[in-house]
Amino acid sequence: MDPVTIRTDTPACTLCGEPAVILQRHTGRYLCGTHLLADVGQRVSETIDSQQQIVPGDVVAVALSGGKDSTALLLLLHSLFGSRDDIRLVAVTIDEGISEYREATIRSAEDLVRRLGVEHITVSFLELFGDSLDTILKGREPQACSICGILRKKALVVGAERAGATKLATGHNLDDEAQSVLMNVLRGDLMRLVRNSGVDSNGRFIPRIKPLMYMQEKEIATFLMVQGIWEDLPECPYATHALRREVRSMLCAIEYQHPGTMLRLMENKKAVEAAFLGKTVGEPVGTCRECGDPCSGDLCQLCQLKPSLLR
């Protein structure tokens, strides 16, 4: 039997009638490529403005792994601030030393900064900690994400300091943020739940900003795809060990059935933050007795980890 030819038009963009590339389930709108780009740009700009994430005089270190989120972040920040004389962007890439993974994303990061003409700083685990992550993790792969998280955090701060940064921008999206809220609830970790790393702690650390925090992962991927800059890059091989993987799958299933769930989780986090504003949860921010970095308790997580790194 000859194949049946059926052409059914794609649903039309709610704003212009062109073929839609995405259904924004939380708003019920269909958007074409042009209107998706405009919508993402506008919402990111609103997030930045409403939280005063970036102000004149800022030097913004943009954490750039070369993956989709950080690529979209740098593109958006460059389009918003690239021509401004009073705001400087510096991309910071961390090379953890993860074979068959990081090489591809670093290449992608280098291509992007070259194309945009953005200053670029790379910091490696080998340089900072004396070993690659692959070597450090041998025999303790199940702890990969918590160990890497501590080391990456330090490496990003070093990179941001080398850039002379006043803000550190990361590409965390709505899915990441909602997962973190749920994970902190599941772990009963109230301190992390109410912590806001975007608040300046009297100059003791560089405030972190997350301009993509209200963008869904699918919106970001589609944003890159319609511009022809989507790259099918590998995922971190250690991510299989993380609780986050289970939470992500569960939350994504709930979001699909009940659109807006992730946004509501974020609203709840803001309400909890507001309720604890000015109150100290857990130990106050102190100073690490070994390295002098700000931390809770008297020894930071990195200095707690260091003895086991010197096996």
């Binding site: 194949p3 049946v4 030819t5 059926i6 052409r7 059914t8 794609t10 649903p11 839609a20 590339v21 995405i22 259904l23 269909y30 792994s65 070369g66 993956g67 989709k68 989120d69 950080s70 690529t71 994303t105 590409g171 992962e217 699918k218 991927a221 795809m225 989507w230 099918d232 890059l233 590998p234 995922e235 971190c236 991510a239 992500r248």
Partner: peptide
């Protein structure tokens, strides 16, 4: 979009959104 009706001799490509980065 996911509610598009496809069929006939259409070629459908599913692209996994890699997490992280």
């Amino acid at each position: 979009t996911e509610d598009t009706v496809v069929g006939g001799d259409d070629e459908i490509l599913i692209i996994r959104i890699s997490h992280g980065g």
